[in-house]
Amino acid sequence: MKTPCTETTTSGLRGEYEGAADDYTVGQHWHAYTPEMHDRWRRLHARQSALVETHACAAFREGLARLDCADGIPRFEDANAVLGPATGWQLVGVPGFIPDAVFFDHLAHRRFPVTRWLREEHELDYLVEPDVFHDFFGHVPMLLDPTIADFLELYGKAGARAMAMDALPMLARIYWYTIEFGLVRETEGLRVFGAGIISSSGETQFSLEDREVLRLPFDPVRVMRTGYTIDSFQKGYFVLESLPQLIEDLVGLDFGPVYERWRHEAPIPAGTLLTGEIPFGETIA
């Protein structure tokens, strides 16, 4: 049995793509994880869990507790036994990044792709590609929330139209600024629900505590027009008033005219405050 690895393929992507099924799924091969990998997971989990209590939204905290994955890299089949009865979702192992159409199809059928390899020791603080810690620790707890569970299915179903209209970057920004880097207002204040934030100790604190970073009220059209960065902390975030807003604001939106109007326009640079906009939490003097 091969060890889940981080080898770079000829395409420049890490992971063992050879032997993957047509839908890019692979077996997790949990028994091939080494003691060192499980120890690395435990240290990552302990560090992020300490921040979860004070920085993550209630749904994330509750989901993480239900998954009970502190002791080592979790088995996807064990998580599926929790997810299935709760929200109908299932995890499928993948080598790493997968094509957009395949990703959308998995989501549309309530299958969440989870990368099976774990980051190396020197990548504990940051890595560009998603690994099993980012995908599982960051994303899976929120799959137990009914709103996020429903939203991700709808997002998957929306992919075909975006690709057909040459507007995939616009739809991708919705995912980026919510599922990956979303903030939500709760009784205690702003909290994180995006996986890209909550799987990074530095950005977890930065996103909520930095006084200079731009935070804007969530507006789906503004989000779809806004660029983002992949190699540094985000220059701006969008804040939901509640998780249900994520669906409420999108269900009634006709994406076709939005795509037609903005798909060929250059995105608004991340962190830019447009004339007339008011940052989240501020009021007009």
Rank of each mutant, 00 (worst) to 15 (best):
R173V: 09
I174T: 10
I174R: 12
Y175G: 15
I179A: 15
E180H: 09
E180L: 05
E180Y: 10
F181G: 01
F181V: 00
L183I: 03
L190D: 00
G196L: 02
G196S: 04
G196W: 04
I198A: 03
S201Y: 13
S201W: 08
S201Q: 08
S201N: 05
G202R: 03
E203R: 07
L208C: 06
L208W: 03
E209L: 15
D210R: 06
D210P: 04
D210T: 08
R211F: 05
R211T: 15
V213C: 07
L214M: 01
L214V: 12
P217L: 03
P217G: 07
V221G: 14
V221D: 12
R222L: 09
V223T: 08
M224E: 04
T226A: 08
G227C: 03
I230S: 15
D231E: 12
Q234L: 03
K235V: 03
G236K: 02
F238L: 04
F238C: 01
V239E: 02
L240D: 11
L240S: 09
S242F: 14
Q245R: 09
L246A: 11
L246E: 12
L246C: 07
I247K: 11
L250K: 04
V251C: 06
D254L: 06
F255P: 13
F255M: 08
G256M: 10
G256L: 14
E260G: 10
W262P: 08
W262G: 13
H264R: 06
E265C: 09
E265W: 02
